[in-house]
Design a protein around this nucleic acid. Sequence first.
DNA 1: ACATGAACAGACAGGTCTGTCTACTCTTAC
DNA 2: GTAAGAGTAGACAGACCTGTCTGTTCATGT
Lengths: 193, 193
Amino acid sequence: MASSTTKPSARERLLESANELFYREGVQSVGIDRVIEHAGVAKASLYNTFGSKEELVHAYLLGRQATTTARITAAIEARSTPRAQLLAVFDSQAESQRRPGFRGCAFAAASAESKPGGLVEQATQGYRTWLRELFVDLATLAGAHDPALLGRQLQLLYDGAASAGNLDHDPAAALSARAAAEALLDLSTGSDR
Amino acid sequence: MASSTTKPSARERLLESANELFYREGVQSVGIDRVIEHAGVAKASLYNTFGSKEELVHAYLLGRQATTTARITAAIEARSTPRAQLLAVFDSQAESQRRPGFRGCAFAAASAESKPGGLVEQATQGYRTWLRELFVDLATLAGAHDPALLGRQLQLLYDGAASAGNLDHDPAAALSARAAAEALLDLSTGSDR
DNA sequence: ACATGAACAGACAGGTCTGTCTACTCTTAC
DNA sequence: GTAAGAGTAGACAGACCTGTCTGTTCATGT
């Protein structure tokens, strides 16, 4: 019963501020000073805890991955058939996209702002590998004729919905993606026969 | 016969350098000094010609739009049937993606690095509006049952291929998108009947 | 009572960025 | 010859950024 009544630790407050500011305005645009000011934390605490800004950004992305993974996993487990589970990924995306403050994929944004070869690219690869394998696994379970191809195409739809939903400020992008995913899935499983 | 033998003007050299450096490393990461050094141009010439960095970035994006528009339009005009024309957009994307130095959509990257409400967002909106109308028009000509929906879904595939092709360094992303587009198109036109 | 460790406030160094400014050079037209 | 316009080189100001460092406060365990 330490973390329930006590105020959050410096690390937790830093991560929460980083999540808010980095996602809203970009990891490059937001400086260290703004993060620590928003978190109410001394600069020395940040550098004692994380060592560098890049590692703070890395921790921010890992946190994003954890919440996204949990959200999608929960949506999948709430469905019973593979087909419904596959579409649930897009339902989860649509719900995330409807929330105020949606600004697209945090990994795509951070990658666009960061040099290749750093921790950002590393975290992005980890996240995308997980997502891709998820789609391929679901496509396999759903009985797709070519699970690798269908999984890839589903990820393209997912990426496109994230990108377009952000650039066009269109909260319905994920719904169009879901409809396309449904059509591709039906084609690939031959469910119209 | 002025521009054939004479060396390019400061404006042209600046735009060419901006196109190369901004696209490769990002509009925020590359400073003014690097652009003028690469162009072999004095800093005063840049500010006399463009007025600010933001306007240079804007001009760079307009140049990107012009070349992309020309490339896609040429690919379309080389085909005769609406169906082939629609798929030619993805062929053109695949060819662009195979070229060395491909780094995804310049507008998406620049948007991720820029504050909303500026010239970058404005240029991005213009480009995306053109692309979207192109897809909807081609879907209409191809006889789609719901051209607005199909056009949107094709754009999602296009965006996803650009994003995934960049983040995963996968030059075949546009080919998977093309195959998905073909399937959606056939479904939407009822060509299997 | 007191030591210890975590967090605080904030000054500071060293670097980078945009944008301005001065002074010089070159070409071309008349 | 010379005036005008375009371009060049580079110093400079002012702001901002990351990361380091000093000194202080405060809760907790012994």
